[in-house]
Amino acid sequence: MRISFKTELKLNNYQRTQLAKHAGVARHAWNWGLDLCKKILDYNQENPSEKLRFPSAIDLHKFLVKWVKAENPWYYEVSKTSPQYALRYLSSAFSDFFRKKTANGRRVGFPRFKHKGQHDSFTLEGTIKVEHRSIQLPKLGIIKTYERLPQGLAPKTAIVSRTANRWFISFSYEIEPTITNKVVAACGVDLGIKTLATLSTGETFSNPQPYRQSQARLARLQKAASRKIKGSNNRRKANMRVTKQHARTANIRKDTLNKLTTHLAKNHSQLVVEDLHVSGMMKNHCLAKSIADLGMYEFRRQLTYKCELYGSELIIANRFFPSSKTCSCCGNIQDMPLKERVFNCQQCNISIDRDLNAARNLQHQAALIVA
Protein backbone atom coordinates (compact mmCIF):
# COMPACT_ATOMS: atom_id res chain seq x y z
CA MET A 1 0.00 0.00 0.00
CA ARG A 2 1.03 3.61 -0.49
CA ILE A 3 1.44 5.91 2.51
CA SER A 4 2.76 9.44 3.01
CA PHE A 5 5.61 10.63 5.19
CA LYS A 6 5.89 14.19 6.50
CA THR A 7 8.69 15.73 8.51
CA GLU A 8 10.10 19.13 9.44
CA LEU A 9 13.10 20.57 7.62
CA LYS A 10 16.18 21.91 9.42
CA LEU A 11 16.98 25.13 7.54
CA ASN A 12 19.41 28.00 7.52
CA ASN A 13 18.44 31.54 6.48
CA TYR A 14 19.48 31.06 2.84
CA GLN A 15 17.39 27.91 2.51
CA ARG A 16 14.39 29.62 4.10
CA THR A 17 14.67 32.37 1.51
CA GLN A 18 14.83 29.86 -1.34
CA LEU A 19 11.76 27.99 -0.07
CA ALA A 20 9.87 31.27 0.29
CA LYS A 21 10.77 32.15 -3.34
CA HIS A 22 9.43 28.81 -4.59
CA ALA A 23 6.21 29.25 -2.62
CA GLY A 24 5.87 32.81 -3.93
CA VAL A 25 6.27 31.74 -7.56
CA ALA A 26 3.72 28.94 -7.10
CA ARG A 27 1.30 31.41 -5.52
CA HIS A 28 1.83 33.94 -8.32
CA ALA A 29 1.22 31.28 -11.00
CA TRP A 30 -1.98 30.12 -9.24
CA ASN A 31 -3.34 33.68 -8.89
CA TRP A 32 -2.43 34.57 -12.47
CA GLY A 33 -4.09 31.41 -13.81
CA LEU A 34 -7.18 31.93 -11.67
CA ASP A 35 -7.53 35.54 -12.85
CA LEU A 36 -7.23 34.42 -16.49
CA CYS A 37 -9.83 31.67 -16.05
CA LYS A 38 -12.25 34.07 -14.38
CA LYS A 39 -11.91 36.51 -17.27
CA ILE A 40 -12.61 33.70 -19.77
CA LEU A 41 -15.70 32.62 -17.82
CA ASP A 42 -16.96 36.20 -17.65
CA TYR A 43 -16.37 36.69 -21.38
CA ASN A 44 -18.23 33.46 -22.23
CA GLN A 45 -21.14 34.56 -20.08
CA GLU A 46 -21.35 37.95 -21.76
CA ASN A 47 -20.80 36.55 -25.29
CA PRO A 48 -22.57 33.17 -25.49
CA SER A 49 -22.28 33.13 -29.31
CA GLU A 50 -18.47 33.57 -29.25
CA LYS A 51 -17.39 31.32 -26.43
CA LEU A 52 -13.69 30.79 -25.76
CA ARG A 53 -12.40 27.33 -24.93
CA PHE A 54 -11.68 26.91 -21.24
CA PRO A 55 -7.91 26.38 -20.84
CA SER A 56 -6.44 23.13 -19.56
CA ALA A 57 -3.34 22.88 -17.36
CA ILE A 58 -1.15 22.51 -20.45
CA ASP A 59 -2.72 25.59 -22.06
CA LEU A 60 -2.19 27.62 -18.91
CA HIS A 61 1.47 26.61 -18.77
CA LYS A 62 2.01 27.59 -22.41
CA PHE A 63 0.44 31.00 -21.75
CA LEU A 64 2.55 31.35 -18.61
CA VAL A 65 5.80 30.72 -20.49
CA LYS A 66 4.81 33.05 -23.32
CA TRP A 67 3.33 35.97 -21.36
CA VAL A 68 4.44 35.83 -17.74
CA LYS A 69 7.94 34.37 -17.63
CA ALA A 70 9.15 36.79 -20.29
CA GLU A 71 8.14 39.76 -18.11
CA ASN A 72 9.14 38.24 -14.76
CA PRO A 73 12.70 36.86 -14.90
CA TRP A 74 12.57 35.84 -11.21
CA TYR A 75 10.55 32.82 -12.36
CA TYR A 76 13.85 31.34 -13.56
CA GLU A 77 15.37 31.53 -10.05
CA VAL A 78 13.23 28.59 -8.87
CA SER A 79 12.44 25.10 -10.12
CA LYS A 80 10.16 25.04 -13.17
CA THR A 81 7.96 22.39 -11.54
CA SER A 82 6.80 24.82 -8.85
CA PRO A 83 4.54 26.91 -11.18
CA GLN A 84 3.72 23.85 -13.32
CA TYR A 85 2.15 21.97 -10.42
CA ALA A 86 0.38 25.11 -9.21
CA LEU A 87 -1.41 25.30 -12.56
CA ARG A 88 -2.16 21.55 -12.44
CA TYR A 89 -3.78 21.98 -9.05
CA LEU A 90 -5.75 24.95 -10.36
CA SER A 91 -7.04 22.91 -13.30
CA SER A 92 -8.01 20.11 -10.90
CA ALA A 93 -9.81 22.62 -8.66
CA PHE A 94 -11.88 23.87 -11.62
CA SER A 95 -12.69 20.28 -12.62
CA ASP A 96 -14.00 19.64 -9.10
CA PHE A 97 -15.99 22.88 -9.24
CA PHE A 98 -17.66 21.97 -12.52
CA ARG A 99 -18.33 18.27 -11.85
CA LYS A 100 -17.80 17.20 -8.26
CA LYS A 101 -20.36 17.48 -5.46
CA THR A 102 -20.04 17.19 -1.71
CA ALA A 103 -21.80 14.64 0.52
CA ASN A 104 -24.67 17.11 0.91
CA GLY A 105 -25.20 17.27 -2.85
CA ARG A 106 -23.73 20.77 -3.11
CA ARG A 107 -21.18 21.79 -5.71
CA VAL A 108 -17.57 22.19 -4.63
CA GLY A 109 -16.64 25.83 -4.06
CA PHE A 110 -15.06 28.11 -6.68
CA PRO A 111 -11.23 28.33 -6.45
CA ARG A 112 -9.95 31.25 -4.39
CA PHE A 113 -6.95 33.52 -4.68
CA LYS A 114 -4.00 32.72 -2.44
CA HIS A 115 -2.43 35.17 0.00
CA LYS A 116 1.14 35.43 1.18
CA GLY A 117 1.80 33.56 4.40
CA GLN A 118 -1.41 31.52 4.26
CA HIS A 119 -1.06 27.84 3.31
CA ASP A 120 2.25 28.42 1.50
CA SER A 121 3.30 25.29 -0.39
CA PHE A 122 4.80 24.07 -3.65
CA THR A 123 5.55 20.76 -5.38
CA LEU A 124 8.89 19.61 -6.74
CA GLU A 125 9.54 16.87 -9.28
CA GLY A 126 12.79 15.39 -10.51
CA THR A 127 15.86 13.90 -8.88
CA ILE A 128 14.95 13.47 -5.21
CA LYS A 129 17.36 11.47 -3.06
CA VAL A 130 16.49 10.47 0.50
CA GLU A 131 19.46 10.07 2.85
CA HIS A 132 19.64 9.22 6.56
CA ARG A 133 18.86 12.69 7.93
CA SER A 134 18.76 14.78 4.77
CA ILE A 135 17.02 14.97 1.43
CA GLN A 136 18.27 16.28 -1.92
CA LEU A 137 15.75 18.38 -3.86
CA PRO A 138 15.90 19.87 -7.38
CA LYS A 139 17.24 23.44 -7.46
CA LEU A 140 17.48 23.49 -3.63
CA GLY A 141 20.24 20.96 -3.01
CA ILE A 142 20.66 18.97 0.21
CA ILE A 143 18.43 19.96 3.11
CA LYS A 144 18.71 18.46 6.58
CA THR A 145 15.81 17.09 8.62
CA TYR A 146 15.22 16.79 12.36
CA GLU A 147 14.38 13.07 12.24
CA ARG A 148 15.51 9.98 10.41
CA LEU A 149 13.94 9.34 7.02
CA PRO A 150 12.78 6.01 5.53
CA GLN A 151 15.65 4.46 3.59
CA GLY A 152 15.79 2.96 0.11
CA LEU A 153 13.32 5.46 -1.37
CA ALA A 154 13.38 7.45 -4.60
CA PRO A 155 10.14 9.48 -4.65
CA LYS A 156 9.24 11.23 -7.89
CA THR A 157 7.57 14.23 -6.26
CA ALA A 158 7.74 16.02 -2.92
CA ILE A 159 5.51 18.70 -1.43
CA VAL A 160 7.07 21.44 0.69
CA SER A 161 4.68 23.41 2.92
CA ARG A 162 4.88 26.01 5.66
CA THR A 163 2.98 26.07 8.95
CA ALA A 164 3.65 29.21 11.00
CA ASN A 165 7.45 29.67 10.69
CA ARG A 166 8.25 25.98 10.20
CA TRP A 167 8.76 24.24 6.85
CA PHE A 168 7.76 20.62 6.22
CA ILE A 169 8.32 18.16 3.40
CA SER A 170 6.07 15.25 2.52
CA PHE A 171 6.31 12.44 -0.02
CA SER A 172 4.62 9.10 -0.57
CA TYR A 173 6.11 5.63 -0.91
CA GLU A 174 5.10 1.98 -1.07
CA ILE A 175 5.11 -0.14 2.07
CA GLU A 176 4.11 -3.69 2.85
CA PRO A 177 1.29 -4.16 5.40
CA THR A 178 2.44 -5.30 8.84
CA ILE A 179 0.15 -7.87 10.45
CA THR A 180 0.30 -7.40 14.23
CA ASN A 181 -0.84 -9.75 17.00
CA LYS A 182 -4.35 -8.77 17.99
CA VAL A 183 -5.43 -8.72 21.64
CA VAL A 184 -9.19 -8.29 21.05
CA ALA A 185 -11.25 -9.94 18.31
CA ALA A 186 -14.10 -7.43 17.80
CA CYS A 187 -14.42 -4.00 19.37
CA GLY A 188 -17.01 -1.25 19.13
CA VAL A 189 -15.81 2.36 19.25
CA ASP A 190 -18.14 5.16 20.29
CA LEU A 191 -16.93 8.73 19.85
CA GLY A 192 -18.06 11.35 22.33
CA ILE A 193 -17.41 14.88 23.53
CA LYS A 194 -16.51 14.44 27.21
CA THR A 195 -14.70 11.18 26.45
CA LEU A 196 -12.99 11.07 23.08
CA ALA A 197 -13.57 7.34 22.55
CA THR A 198 -15.22 4.60 24.60
CA LEU A 199 -14.47 1.00 23.66
CA SER A 200 -16.77 -1.98 24.20
CA THR A 201 -14.05 -3.46 26.43
CA GLY A 202 -14.62 -0.62 28.91
CA GLU A 203 -11.43 1.24 27.97
CA THR A 204 -11.82 4.99 27.60
CA PHE A 205 -9.67 7.73 26.05
CA SER A 206 -9.92 11.25 27.42
CA ASN A 207 -10.58 14.21 25.15
CA PRO A 208 -7.84 16.87 25.45
CA GLN A 209 -10.14 19.52 23.90
CA PRO A 210 -7.18 21.43 22.42
CA TYR A 211 -9.17 24.36 21.06
CA ARG A 212 -11.15 24.97 24.24
CA GLN A 213 -7.97 24.79 26.32
CA SER A 214 -6.24 27.36 24.12
CA GLN A 215 -9.27 29.61 23.52
CA ALA A 216 -8.40 32.16 26.22
CA ARG A 217 -4.77 32.48 25.13
CA LEU A 218 -5.80 32.67 21.47
CA ALA A 219 -8.26 35.48 22.19
CA ARG A 220 -5.57 37.40 24.06
CA LEU A 221 -3.07 37.02 21.22
CA GLN A 222 -5.62 38.04 18.59
CA LYS A 223 -6.60 41.10 20.61
CA ALA A 224 -2.94 42.11 20.92
CA ALA A 225 -2.40 41.65 17.18
CA SER A 226 -5.41 43.80 16.30
CA ARG A 227 -3.94 46.72 18.24
CA LYS A 228 -0.71 46.82 16.24
CA ILE A 229 -0.31 49.20 13.31
CA LYS A 230 -1.14 47.57 9.98
CA GLY A 231 1.95 46.80 7.94
CA SER A 232 4.34 47.13 10.88
CA ASN A 233 6.84 44.51 12.02
CA ASN A 234 5.15 44.36 15.41
CA ARG A 235 1.87 43.38 13.75
CA ARG A 236 3.66 40.73 11.69
CA LYS A 237 5.26 39.29 14.84
CA ALA A 238 1.93 39.34 16.69
CA ASN A 239 0.19 37.56 13.82
CA MET A 240 2.95 34.94 13.85
CA ARG A 241 2.22 34.27 17.54
CA VAL A 242 -1.43 33.70 16.65
CA THR A 243 -0.45 31.34 13.84
CA LYS A 244 1.86 29.39 16.16
CA GLN A 245 -0.94 28.97 18.67
CA HIS A 246 -3.28 27.66 15.98
CA ALA A 247 -0.57 25.22 14.83
CA ARG A 248 0.02 24.00 18.40
CA THR A 249 -3.71 23.37 18.84
CA ALA A 250 -3.89 21.40 15.60
CA ASN A 251 -0.78 19.40 16.53
CA ILE A 252 -2.27 18.34 19.87
CA ARG A 253 -5.40 17.13 18.09
CA LYS A 254 -3.40 15.25 15.42
CA ASP A 255 -1.13 13.65 18.00
CA THR A 256 -4.08 12.42 20.07
CA LEU A 257 -5.87 10.96 17.06
CA ASN A 258 -2.70 9.32 15.73
CA LYS A 259 -2.01 7.56 19.04
CA LEU A 260 -5.64 6.46 19.38
CA THR A 261 -6.06 5.11 15.85
CA THR A 262 -2.69 3.31 15.97
CA HIS A 263 -3.64 1.62 19.25
CA LEU A 264 -6.99 0.53 17.86
CA ALA A 265 -5.66 -0.80 14.55
CA LYS A 266 -2.73 -2.69 16.10
CA ASN A 267 -4.60 -4.45 18.91
CA HIS A 268 -8.09 -5.22 17.50
CA SER A 269 -9.01 -7.62 14.70
CA GLN A 270 -12.36 -5.94 13.95
CA LEU A 271 -13.34 -2.36 14.65
CA VAL A 272 -16.90 -1.09 14.36
CA VAL A 273 -17.59 2.65 14.17
CA GLU A 274 -20.67 4.65 13.31
CA ASP A 275 -21.19 6.44 10.02
CA LEU A 276 -21.70 9.82 11.69
CA HIS A 277 -23.42 12.70 9.90
CA VAL A 278 -20.93 15.31 11.08
CA SER A 279 -22.27 18.22 9.01
CA GLY A 280 -25.72 17.61 10.46
CA MET A 281 -24.33 17.43 14.00
CA MET A 282 -22.57 20.75 13.45
CA LYS A 283 -25.95 22.45 13.06
CA ASN A 284 -26.44 22.09 16.81
CA HIS A 285 -24.84 25.40 17.77
CA CYS A 286 -24.56 24.39 21.41
CA LEU A 287 -22.22 21.51 20.52
CA ALA A 288 -20.74 22.62 17.19
CA LYS A 289 -17.49 23.90 18.68
CA SER A 290 -16.92 20.73 20.70
CA ILE A 291 -17.75 18.48 17.73
CA ALA A 292 -15.36 20.40 15.47
CA ASP A 293 -12.67 20.10 18.14
CA LEU A 294 -12.90 16.29 18.00
CA GLY A 295 -11.69 15.87 14.44
CA MET A 296 -14.15 13.08 13.57
CA TYR A 297 -13.31 13.06 9.87
CA GLU A 298 -9.58 12.82 10.62
CA PHE A 299 -10.27 9.94 13.03
CA ARG A 300 -12.16 8.04 10.32
CA ARG A 301 -9.50 8.77 7.68
CA GLN A 302 -6.61 7.62 9.86
CA LEU A 303 -8.43 4.53 11.08
CA THR A 304 -9.24 3.50 7.50
CA TYR A 305 -5.67 3.33 6.23
CA LYS A 306 -4.19 2.06 9.51
CA CYS A 307 -6.56 -0.89 9.58
CA GLU A 308 -5.29 -1.80 6.13
CA LEU A 309 -1.70 -1.25 7.24
CA TYR A 310 -1.90 -3.44 10.36
CA GLY A 311 -4.24 -6.12 9.04
CA SER A 312 -7.45 -5.14 10.86
CA GLU A 313 -10.99 -4.98 9.51
CA LEU A 314 -12.95 -1.75 9.74
CA ILE A 315 -16.74 -2.09 9.80
CA ILE A 316 -18.97 0.96 9.35
CA ALA A 317 -22.33 0.65 11.10
CA ASN A 318 -25.44 2.10 9.47
CA ARG A 319 -25.94 5.79 10.14
CA PHE A 320 -29.48 5.19 11.43
CA PHE A 321 -28.57 2.32 13.78
CA PRO A 322 -29.87 3.38 17.27
CA SER A 323 -26.73 2.48 19.21
CA SER A 324 -27.48 4.88 22.09
CA LYS A 325 -31.17 3.97 22.37
CA THR A 326 -30.78 0.18 22.34
CA CYS A 327 -30.06 -1.86 25.47
CA SER A 328 -26.86 -3.85 24.96
CA CYS A 329 -28.19 -6.57 27.29
CA CYS A 330 -31.75 -7.31 26.14
CA GLY A 331 -32.08 -5.29 22.93
CA ASN A 332 -34.91 -3.06 24.17
CA ILE A 333 -35.16 0.27 22.32
CA GLN A 334 -36.25 3.35 24.29
CA ASP A 335 -35.92 7.13 24.10
CA MET A 336 -32.58 8.45 25.28
CA PRO A 337 -32.24 12.25 25.54
CA LEU A 338 -28.74 13.63 25.06
CA LYS A 339 -28.62 15.02 28.62
CA GLU A 340 -28.94 11.54 30.16
CA ARG A 341 -25.49 10.03 30.49
CA VAL A 342 -26.58 6.72 32.08
CA PHE A 343 -28.72 4.18 30.22
CA ASN A 344 -31.39 2.72 32.53
CA CYS A 345 -33.20 -0.08 30.70
CA GLN A 346 -36.94 -0.14 31.36
CA GLN A 347 -37.17 -3.84 30.54
CA CYS A 348 -34.21 -5.61 32.19
CA ASN A 349 -33.40 -2.79 34.68
CA ILE A 350 -29.73 -2.72 33.77
CA SER A 351 -27.86 0.53 34.48
CA ILE A 352 -24.85 1.26 32.28
CA ASP A 353 -22.89 4.25 31.00
CA ARG A 354 -24.43 5.67 27.85
CA ASP A 355 -21.22 5.58 25.75
CA LEU A 356 -20.26 2.09 26.94
CA ASN A 357 -23.74 0.84 26.05
CA ALA A 358 -23.42 2.30 22.53
CA ALA A 359 -19.95 0.78 22.08
CA ARG A 360 -21.22 -2.68 23.05
CA ASN A 361 -24.12 -2.36 20.61
CA LEU A 362 -21.60 -1.55 17.88
CA GLN A 363 -19.61 -4.63 18.88
CA HIS A 364 -22.75 -6.75 18.42
CA GLN A 365 -23.07 -5.31 14.91
CA ALA A 366 -19.75 -6.91 13.93
CA ALA A 367 -21.15 -10.43 14.39
CA LEU A 368 -24.35 -9.54 12.50
CA ILE A 369 -22.50 -8.00 9.54
CA VAL A 370 -20.05 -10.90 9.27
CA ALA A 371 -22.89 -13.45 9.50
Rank of each mutant, 00 (worst) to 15 (best):
K244M: 06
A197N: 05
Q365S: 01
P111L: 03
K325L: 05
Q302L: 07
S4G: 12
V370C: 13
L153Y: 15
A197D: 05
I291L: 03
T145E: 07
L52M: 04
I159V: 12
L87S: 01
T204G: 11
S323C: 04
T195A: 06
I315H: 14
K283D: 04
D255A: 00
N318P: 07
G126K: 03
A154C: 15
H61R: 12
F343G: 00
R166W: 15
G126V: 02
E298P: 10
L64H: 14
T17P: 04
T123D: 10
F98A: 00
N357R: 11
V242L: 12
S269I: 09
V273R: 13
H22D: 09
G141C: 04
R354Y: 05
A366N: 11
A103D: 09
K101D: 15
R88S: 01
L356A: 00
E77F: 04
N181W: 05
G126A: 08
C187R: 12
A366V: 08
A358H: 02
T102A: 00
F110L: 15
K339V: 06
G141F: 10
F122A: 00
D190H: 01
R235M: 15
N165Y: 08
I229W: 12
I40L: 14
K139T: 10
V273A: 11
K223E: 07
K325D: 06
L52F: 03
D353T: 00
S172E: 05
G295I: 10
N207F: 03
F97E: 07
